[in-house]
Design a protein around this nucleic acid. Sequence first.
RNA 1: GCGGAUGUGGUGGAAUUGGUAGACACGCCAGAUUUAGGAUCUGGUGCCGUAAGGUGUGGAGGUUCGACUCCUCUCAUCCGCACCA
Length: 813
Amino acid sequence: MEYNPLDIEKKWQKRWEEEKAFEPFEDESREKKYILSMFPYPSGRIHMGHVRNYSIGDALARYYRKQGFNVLHPIGWDAFGMPAENAAIKNRLHPKNWTYDNIDYMRKELSSLGLSFSKDREFATCDPLYTKWEQEFIIKMFDSGLLYRENNSVNWCESCHTVLANEQVEDGCCWRCDNPVIQKQMPGYYLDILRYAEELLDDLKLLEGKWPHQVITMQRNWIGRSEGLEFKFELSDESKKLLDNNFDGYEVFTTRPDTIFGVTYSALAPEHKIVEYMLENNLLPEDTVKALEKIRNMSERDRAQADKEGYPLGISVIHPLTGKDIPVWTANFVLASYGGGAVMAVPAHDERDFEFATKYNLPIIRVIEGGETLPYTGDGKLIDSGVFSGKDNNQAKKEIIAFFEAERLGKKQINFKLRNWGVNRQRYWGAPIPLVHCPECGLVAEKIENLPITLPDDVEITGEGNPLENHPTWKYCKCPNCGADAIRETDTLDTFVQSSWYQFRYAVNPKKWEEIGIDKDASKYWLPVDQYIGGIEHAILHLLYARFFTKALRDLGYHNINEPFERLLTQGMVLKDGAKMSKSKGNTVDPDEIIKKYGADTARLFILFAAPPQKELEWNDSAVEGAYRFLKKLASKSEKVKYDYLPEIEHSSLSKEAKEARAKVYEALKRGEDVYTKSFAFNTLIAGVMEALNALDKQDDDKVWSEGIYILLHLLEPIVPHIASEMSDKLFGMKNLKDKIEIKDEVFVKDSITYAVSINGKRRSEIEVMADASKEEILKVAKDRGAKWLDGMEIVKEIVVPNKLVNFVIKPK
RNA sequence: GCGGAUGUGGUGGAAUUGGUAGACACGCCAGAUUUAGGAUCUGGUGCCGUAAGGUGUGGAGGUUCGACUCCUCUCAUCCGCACCA
């Protein structure tokens, strides 16, 4: 067969399209597999990362479909977001047109790869129908208190003109545009993800062994649970007076209550309400005021890099156990947003406190034994700690917490690094937040029957200000509650909200899309996603949000699923010349051009062959040629096939080469199952197929050839579906793609076995013995062969590893 | 600093439970074919050595008859977090 990839691929893609070959069955009695590659942002063109992502997913989907599973393998578009607005500013295109045009183009590109998606279930997250259901969830979340509005210090991207969630700040910069993020005080909408912090952390255990270890670790660290003591520092009488009796103390949190006798000062964040009060009421020296203003204008990141700096506030608190006076400082290293924005400081046993105390000559009191120098943060016995002296510090932790609880001085407390998810964005191209500001009723949810609240089309997008805010009429509405003139919320939702529940939307039968957002029964059948495939860059962001949303929607009664993604595969990046492909570096390879030149099958084969999916993949033009060459060779072997079915073969009568070829073919078949279901090491499967083809080429038995090609095409179909379908159709009437193929163990039985002969563990030679040879016979042959090395030596030990090798341990006589 | 991962030929990468290191492919070399180039085919290809042989999985030790694989230490690279009290 002549290999004409373009003709073949067009032909099969058309056929698949006409036959609607990849729609799941409406038959829930069948065993299901839900295979999902992360959906793309419709940026305009696909890139090699997409090709890799969808090639992996498609191979799995096709494999399971062939094994008789009911497979859901959908595609959609993560279609809201900044780039559409940037394009609007730059090229005067409407975000909606830009987005849908891009989707049309990319859809074509993806189909040219021959991906087996369910077309009926495709949607874009900017479709009003998708927005409608999302707004319903948001209203339910608002009603249940999970969504709330609060004035807070937020991350603000100067370039995107919008706030960002904590997870979306990378290295102090915006995750999308890489510009610096500043802190700004403003009202925002928050999803109370902390309500689920404990569950999100605990359930990571369920994912152990199914998700990459490092993703689990990253999530665990991000959630950042810590246990400790929260207690109140009572202000001294003088200090209370100084603060006009507006405060009687403040809460601090510590994970080291065992060191509490070593407290020599306490420090407040520059944003702490006491500091705030002192600033407003001119209770601080002028230098301090100026310095604090400077610090308060710094971002968290800049502060983290700055040297420790602080100022005494001229007030003091009472140590709850010793009754001593403790001076209170304000310091740049105390975070306002964690643990109440205040700390007790134990310089002897905390590096930060030590550094600060040293700088400002504050006293340092050791209360734990151990370590040669201070600060010492390890374990040890308590000293100078009142009744707790002499105790082991871990025991003392518990006892001191118990003591505080008994005396009602404080309580055991669990804190998280995780912050609530800020979900509003001051942008146009997003899902409107379905809430209304009423002068009478306050913040009110839209009526469900009014959903979706859609975006106005007639907007001017300039990049300045919030386009919805600036729209002449859109925001004016009636209060859904009292009917008074009211104003719509003009912020839109973070795009990560859309991608947090799309896995449930695909499970809804499209016939029901108008009636329901999430289908409880369908979710029960299809969810969780059996295999999720995507980039490691979403280890925290999307994967944490989607887990949270799954739990939140479960509790709102939409479904009964606890975790959305059963197994996760994080693919490595596609590199060129050792660097990530990017336009700015000019090292991109355009998938379209590769497909045009070699066909989709070559692209898919190369990308799965060049590296295991988890690893980075270095693009290599000549290796792509190699993949193409293999397919050409495969096609040319059509002529060797003389039987259009799996012929009966009398194995024992075959030549040595033919036996070898069969063994290789069945070895590949055996490996296939492991690769497709567990290891995903497609590279080794492909190598096995190549080996088998090479072995077939060394013999000329018609039956062995027919059987070999029959099986190899079966194995290759998920990877190179076009050529595999074409050849299978021509040669076998597709029979080889329909059923499982039984492994015939007899082909692995060999009449003779090659043993390596090693001396002192070093391979010296090899021997061939009959398969039924006894240990003694093997040793005899091995000794003859190894005579050269054994001569004049004493054999100390003889080891025979069945089917592998013989080892002689020798020493001079 | 803390946490995680990875180190195997010129390159991408293989090596069930410890059992013939370098499968498969790229590249390279030689040959065949060709007017030539390209394409294709055949053979070779870890390193040193003409060879015998030696040596070899980042490095140093250890366990073992036998270590890419297990243990200890160490170096390098990459990624994530980064004052979370």
